[in-house]
Each structure stands twice: as structure tokens, then as C-alpha cells.
Design a protein around this nucleic acid. Structure first.
Lengths: 208, 208
DNA sequence: TTGCAAAATGAACCATGTGTCATTTATATT
DNA sequence: AATATAAATGACACATGGTTCATTTTGCAA
């Protein structure tokens, strides 16, 4: 008798599915991905995957959760290691510029697709709002830290500024996905955000 | 003998399919819509639709073309009827705010989905870039008109400014679709664009 | 009214995907 | 080595969508 498989191995299997799923979602996007694709990518048998995940959506949510955690961590590192809040924000924009060049190999496109098409499904929308609030929370904490330090003196509500910033970055990113990073002039667009964000945050440019 | 059906009736049939398809795309989005859905919505028989359109994509492209034309017309009307270029741009933003409240009944979501998931398909991407350039063209003509009249004195290239403006609007719109217009604070975000656009266009605020 | 060809139909076939479950495989324990 | 049982398999039943095409319907011309 005996369970024969440790929790550790079980977790490995789960990870194996998630890795395979990530490749599939990158390759085919969200809506067109199938459980079959994922099983085949994982090189496992049909029925097996259902022991771990019931639906494609469940798998995708697990992937998002992982990326959300990584993002959260990256944010806290950035904040801790920057000389000023603005410097952290500036580095964030630099990171985004870099990310623009590897969009085809990232989950970003599937993620936006999932996000966009989700509004038709009540349950998914609830989850989407949760994800959005999480991402927004990171930016808002950053802005609040800047206000607390006296670095920023915004005239608009912090919430709104956070939303504006995320819309901007997402707009640029989705355009870059659609027409290509070069065609979108993504890097120049991000550079142009700097004075806008300074305006929003009430940072006065130093003369000279 | 005889063809029995006039070109006019043929055009009506075509229109009937397009109307049905539009409803389906609004309801299900792009990727999940099927020819079957469209045929059923049009209350016609299965095979019949293939006499008019071969693929879902062909239908969607026809819909887009229609909307593109309408958009083009709206733009020229706006430009012709406004006292200044900035006034036209301002009205455009007001229109966008209104549009935010009817997103669920518009093709917008399917359009963004099509746009986003298109980057994996070479042919579709070529068409996407064409659509993007058409939309961008409208904005660019507007900016150039403003420059010619001495209303705008931008420091960035016109092309880039146009791209920034469209990214901004698209970012807000896709966020509004995903989490809801209210949750996105879409109207307030658009209002916040006004000083940004003025900054980009080199319009000096009048004191007082 | 009849004949005829265009127009329209929908059954049928094919391909693909989902999810189940009887069967096989592998291994820890005895 | 034998046994028990968890783990894994993949054939199968079912559903859905795409596409074709033999058949039926339609309405004009003769």
C-alpha cells in the first residue's frame, strides 16, 4: 500500500503542468489554448491533468498568481534599493522598456486577452478586479511613500493617479503587442511619460 | 432562367449577415464567436453563409471597415465644425467619455481582442497595422492642422505624439472594459489627459 | 403553366476538444 | 517475491464547429 508519491513530487508535477501551460499560453494566447494543448506540451496523458486542475481558467489563475507574487517582490526590492521614490519609479519605467523587447516570449499578451475578454463572465470579472487592485496597490503604495517623504505634491487623488499610470503603461504595452514594439515607438512613448508623471505627481523640474 | 436576385438584394443579405455578426461579436467577443453563432443569429441555414463570406475573420474585417469609415467621417465633421483644432480635440475627448458608458454594447471589446491576439498571425498583423495607421492618420492630420495654424508648438515628432494619444485613449478604454467604467474612473482619467495633451502639443495655458 | 437555373437548405461528414473511467503500471510494504 | 493500492494511461462517449453538396425551393421567362 502507501501513497507512493510525496507532496514534494506532487508539487513538482503541478509545476510541470504550469510550465507547460505557460508555453502554450505564450504560443496560442488564452482563448485558443486548450487543455489538450497543455497536456501534450507537458507530455502527459489526457485524463491525468484533471487530477491536478479542472479547467484552463484554474491553470491560468495559478500562473497569474505566481507572476503577481514575483511582481510584488520586484516592487518592494525596487522601493528598498532606490535613493528616492522618483528614482524607483524611473527605474520601473526603464524595466518596462526592457520588457517591451521580450513581449513575444511573455505571458503578457495572453494576460491582456484574458483580462479583456473577461468582462463577459461575472466570476472572471470579480477575479480580474482583484488582480487589478493588486497591481494598482503596488503603484499606490509607491505614490503614498513619495507623498509621505514630501517628494510628491499631487493635486489629483492618489487612487486616480495610480489608475492613470497603469492605463498608460498598459496602453503602450498592448499597442506594442499589436503592432510591434518598434512600430509603436514604445520606448519613446515611455520616455514621454516622464514629464507627464512628474506633472501628475507635482514634481517641479529643476531649472538648468 | 435569370439570376433572380438583384445586386441590391444581395447587398441586403450581406448586410443582414454583418448585423447578425455584430451582435454575436458584441456578445461573445472575437475568438469565441463561431460561424455557427452568426448563422443562427441571422436565422439562416448553415451552408448559406459561405456564399457570402468564407471565414469569421473576413466578416470581422468587413465590420471593421464599416466602422473605420464612420470614424473617418466623424473626424472630418469634427474638424470642420470646431472653432479651433484644440476645440476639436477637446470634443473628441468628450465623445470618448460618452462612449465609455456604452462599451458593453459596442464592438470595442471584440476589436481589442482581435487586435491583441492578432500578433501571432502574420497576415492578421499586417491588416492590424493598416487599421492602426488609419486611426493614427486621423489624429496626425488633426495635429498637423493645429501646427499649421500656429495653435500647437510641439517639441516631439508629430507621429510620436499621435501614437501617445492613441495609446492613452486605448489604455483607458481597455481598462474600462476590463474592470468597468466606474471602477476605472474613466471620465476622470480622460479629464486628466487634457493637461498632458496640452503639454505634448505645446499649448501654453493662459494665466487667469 | 411550365421549365429552368439561381438561391437556399440542412443533413452528413470530418476534425477537434472535453471529461470519464476501466485498465494498466509502478512501487512501498510485508 | 507477493500484494495492495496510488498513480497514470488512453480509449471512448459525447459535444461542438467547419465545410460540402445533393436536394429542394423560388421566381422569372417563355
Amino acid at each position: 500500500m502507501s501513497p507512493k508519491i510525496s507532496d514534494e513530487v506532487k508539487e513538482q508535477r503541478r509545476q510541470q503542468i504550469l510550465d507547460a501551460a505557460e508555453q502554450v499560453f505564450i504560443r496560442t494566447g488564452y482563448e485558443l489554448a486548450t487543455m489538450k494543448n497543455i497536456v501534450e506540451e507537458a507530455e502527459m496523458s489526457r485524463g491525468w491533468i484533471y487530477l491536478y486542475f479542472q479547467t484552463k481558467e484554474e491553470i491560468f489563475e495559478a500562473l497569474i498568481a505566481k507572476h503577481e507574487q514575483e511582481n510584488e517582490y520586484m516592487f518592494s526590492q525596487l522601493l528598498a534599493s532606490s535613493p528616492s521614490i522618483w528614482a524607483a519609479l524611473d527605474r520601473l519605467l526603464t524595466e518596462q522598456k526592457k520588457a517591451m523587447n521580450t513581449l513575444e516570449n511573455s505571458l503578457a499578451s495572453a494576460y491582456y486577452e484574458y483580462f479583456l475578454s473577461g468582462y463577459r463572465d461575472k466570476d472572471r470579472r470579480i477575479r480580474l478586479i482583484r488582480h487589478y487592485d493588486a497591481a494598482l496597490g503596488n503603484i499606490i503604495r509607491l505614490i503614498e511613500a513619495g507623498i509621505a517623504k514630501g517628494e510628491f505634491r499631487p493635486t489629483l487623488p492618489t487612487q486616480l493617479i495610480g489608475k492613470i499610470m497603469t492605463s498608460n503603461l498598459e496602453g503602450i504595452m498592448s499597442l506594442a503587442m499589436a503592432v510591434g514594439t518598434a512600430q509603436a515607438e514604445a520606448a519613446a512613448q515611455i520616455d514621454a511619460l516622464i514629464p507627464y508623471f512628474k506633472l501628475l505627481l507635482g514634481i517641479n523640474e529643476q531649472a538648468g
